[in-house]
Design a protein around this nucleic acid. Structure first.
Length: 387
RNA sequence: GGGGAAGUCGCAUAGUGGCAAUUGCAACAGACUGUAAAUCUGUCCUCUUCGGAGUUCAGUGGUUCGAGUCCACUCUUCCCCA
């Protein structure tokens, strides 16, 4: 099923369909056992087995998500690996037959920093649910992801804060590399449980320091993986620094493998990163901000709670592939969100995810058509506006 | 007709001599990037150069250095008995 000296797998493949002439943008297709993923792609986040407020049917039909995320830490705590195993894996448990990527819990090392302790062995978390202690190691994080059955598993990493001083950033990166090695080792020692291959993506760290990023990208690239992730960005450092780090890392990561920028970002972030050769993205922003009343549109961002939308009887997006966008108006969504009606959370989430998927689809088309650069420049200006 | 209770910044509340005045809701803004988030933050009497300044607690008058708080009367609302 796999060779001993590589992480590449027969069920997986990445084909570049087009490369932009003026920039590093690429259009490709990532093949997995659960279906092909056109890139650039945005992956909706479904932490605990649900993209919050969105039905699987809407993800499939309206949003047309090609792959979604789950989270190792959260799924391990609830519903737990025994149940997921009994259910036949996460795909069957949640009724989603397209690809799934699971984050390893590395981000929780960052976001739950007050409730965890890092050692060489791994990271011990105090559960945010019941206070119980759980140790995550590179080995059991692979084991858990085997039980989840995700198509793409992520290596266990430490995601340090964006403004970490150099000595800590270096120490943290080196730990992440040792953990990466152990993840690869465990990956090779274990088999998938549900009849489909699972890829393992290493994660590049190194904070805002170019020399560390280079070292980390080289360490990751040496693993000959199906794909690579860039982690530890959009965690407090300036946006321009994030773009610089993407450039540094992508100059080293192999061009014939997909590159996944973890946790990013705003629509403008996506286009800037695509221009720099990133292929995959995930972010809670479309769903979380949607639930909090923020809409992303082709003309800029909207705070639907603002009084100015009270009497705007225009459809949210008459051209959208999502029925909710064509049928419901700004005024109605304003009312629903103000009234705390659950339908409002659904419409806002569907809208934002549909927009994100439409945005990356448009980016891909412009790469294929050969006019990505000029399209991107005009779009970024519009996307950063507030309306 | 008799007896009782109460009127505080949109609504509801706290406040029993040092108060521009508690809290909740509403309203109006802002934040959110590998989800402990249907969450969090700010403003919310008027003006302001953000240091302050000026007017407030149904009304009028009074006691007091000082009154939302105490006294008198007026107005209004609610409850009970006829």
């Amino acid at each position: 099923m796999y060779q001993s000296d590589t992480l590449t797998l027969s069920d997986f493949g990445f084909q570049l369909a087009a490369t932009d002439k003026l920039t590093n943008a690429r259009a490709g297709v990532l093949r997995t056992a659960h279906g092909d993923i056109p890139t650039p792609i945005f992956m909706p986040v479904g932490t605990v087995g649900s993209v919050k407020a969105v039905h699987q049917s809407e993800l499939r039909n309206d949003i047309d998500a090609k792959i979604i995320l789950g989270n190792t830490y959260h799924l391990y705590l609830r519903p737990g690996t025994d149940l997921l195993h009994a259910a036949g894996g996460l795909h069957r448990f949640i009724g989603w037959e397209r690809p799934i990527l699971t984050d390893s819990g590395g981000f929780q090392v960052f976001s739950l920093a007050d409730n965890r302790k890092i050692t060489e062995e791994g990271c011990t978390f105090k559960s945010h649910i019941d206070g119980s202690r759980h140790k995550f190691t590179p080995e059991n994080v692979i084991d858990i992801q085997r039980l989840i059955g995700s198509d793409i598993m992520m290596a266990f990493d430490e995601c340090p804060p964006g403004e970490s001083p150099y000595p800590y950033a270096k120490k943290s990166m080196e730990l992440t590399h040792r953990w990466m090695d152990r993840c690869v080792q465990r990956f090779r020692e274990t088999e998938p449980l549900y009849g489909h291959q699972q890829a393992l993506f290493p994660i590049v760290q190194g904070c805002k320091y170019p020399d560390l990023r280079r070292i980390s990208a080289e360490h990751a690239a040496s693993k000959d993986a199906v794909g690579y992730a860039i982690g530890g960005l959009a965690v407090g450092e300036p946006t321009e620094v994030m773009y610089q780090m993407i450039e540094v890392v992508n100059a080293i990561l192999p061009a014939d493998r997909p590159r996944y920028l973890m946790g990013v970002g705003t629509p403008a972030n996506l286009l800037e990163a695509i221009e720099r050769g990133v292929d995959m993205f995930d972010c809670v922003m479309p769903t979380r901000n949607g639930r909090n009343g923020m809409l992303f549109t082709w003309e800029g961002t909207v705070n639907i709670k603002n009084k100015k939308w009270e009497t705007c009887f225009e459809p949210i997006d008459p051209e959208s592939p999502a029925e909710a966008d064509r049928v419901y108006t700004y005024a109605y969504l304003h009312h629903l969100i103000k009234a705390e009606e659950l339908l409002g959370l659904q419409i806002a989430s569907i809208h934002n995810l549909t927009f994100y998927l439409s945005l990356v689809r448009a980016a891909r088309q412009h790469i294929v058509d050969g006019d990505f650069s000029q399209w991107k420049s005009a779009m970024v200006q519009k996307l950063m506006r507030r309306i």
